[in-house]
């Protein structure tokens, strides 16, 4: 375990349920993790596994028909701990944290930016509410931010509308917006899924730079294992509302101990291994969230399934930094451990 002062945010046994169509969807069903200062936590999993809901829960940006059932989201600010889940959803304290302490960037920068306002206006909004700068200083700071993000001619581009920006530039503008108040934590929800591969690399480079320069803790949500290998310090693998395996990037990617993580890794081709490599897709499909399997959620698709899997497994600490949620994880441990 890390010393407490290294940790920016800790989530403990979090449950968030959705109540649409008169049904209850247990979108997050008991999730715990920590985000370390100046480190990147990658949350990976298939779509619908609860990655984005976790991010929304931290920011309390959940839709109206949803509720944090139990658990704690604790933000370790410089002025003491804040229990985020206890704050009123759109109340003043929550708003003071959003944007200035914890900021977020979204998957599709086209839809995430308001089409009828200029880029400068939208970045400035954040500064207007979280700093005491006057409008002239806000404009200067906005231009500086755009320049830092590598946008050329920021003095002119600041008055452009989102549709005049290219996809990569929009995401840079989004990051500028998120970084405008030097947040302690940056949550990035699949920030490059909608972008070209070359632009992806640039965006990640930018995020790496911010992490080292500002000591920002980053929570990066992705489904791309390549991104994980490149950027992550810690990894949490999610499946159907649970973190099934968590640990440092080396541990999880090199020696996965959860059958799901292993299956996930086996399903990706590895560059340089040639075209003869065996790629095995995960059998079956993710279950209907309204009709979940009893016990371990992955059991119906799992090749290590045994009778005990009909009961929901507990989280087990394999070692100091690594947790897994599987009855049979020992079968997957490399020999000699």
């Amino acid at each position: 375990m890390q010393a407490a002062h290294d940790i920016a945010l800790s989530v403990k046994d979090l449950k968030t349920y959705f109540y649409t169509n008169n049904r209850c969807n247990k979108a997050i069903n008991g999730v715990s993790f920590e985000i370390r200062k100046g480190k990147t936590l990658c949350v990976v999993g298939e779509s619908g596994c609860g990655k984005s809901v976790t991010a929304s829960t931290i920011m309390q940006l959940l839709p109206a028909l949803s509720r944090i059932e139990q658990g704690q989201v604790t933000y370790h600010s410089d002025n003491g701990d804040v229990e985020i889940e206890k704050l009123e959803r759109d109340g003043q304290e929550m708003r003071a944290i959003r944007g200035s302490e914890i900021a977020m960037i979204f998957q599709d920068p086209m839809t995430a930016l308001n089409p009828v306002y200029t880029i400068g206006f939208q970045i400035g909004e954040s500064l207007k509410y979280h700093t005491n700068l006057n409008s002239k200083e806000i404009r200067e700071r906005t231009i500086d931010l755009l320049r830092d993000m590598g946008i050329s001619l920021p003095e002119m581009r600041v008055d452009d509308y989102p549709h005049q920006f290219s996809g990569g530039m929009r995401q840079r503008a989004m990051i500028a917006m998120a970084m405008s108040c030097n947040p302690k934590i940056l949550i990035a929800d699949e920030p490059t899924t909608a972008l070209d591969v070359t632009i992806q690399a640039q965006i990640f480079e930018l995020m790496e730079k911010l992490k080292t320069e500002h000591e920002t803790a980053i929570m990066l949500i992705t489904h791309d294992m390549g991104v994980v290998a490149e950027l992550a310090d810690d990894v949490a693998v999610m499946y159907m509302g649970n973190i099934v395996e968590a640990g440092t990037v080396d541990q999880v990617l090199r020696n996965p101990v959860h059958p799901y993580t292993r299956a996930l890794l086996d399903s990706i081709p590895v560059l340089g291994k040639g075209k003869d490599q065996i790629i095995s897709p995960i059998s079956g499909s993710t279950p209907d969230p309204y009709n979940r399997p009893i016990g371990c959620q992955f059991a119906p698709r799992c090749s290590y399934k045994t009778d005990v899997c009909d009961v929901m497994p507990e989280e087990v600490n394999v070692d100091k930094t690594r947790r897994v949620m599987c009855w049979n994880y020992k079968d997957l441990l490399p020999n000699g451990e």
Partner: peptide
């Protein structure tokens, strides 16, 4: 934090 009436509705659905 959710409003009281929604909370009640949610509890019912959950039950």
């Amino acid at each position: 934090m959710v409003s009281r009436s929604l909370n009640k509705k949610f509890d019912k659905i959950l039950a």
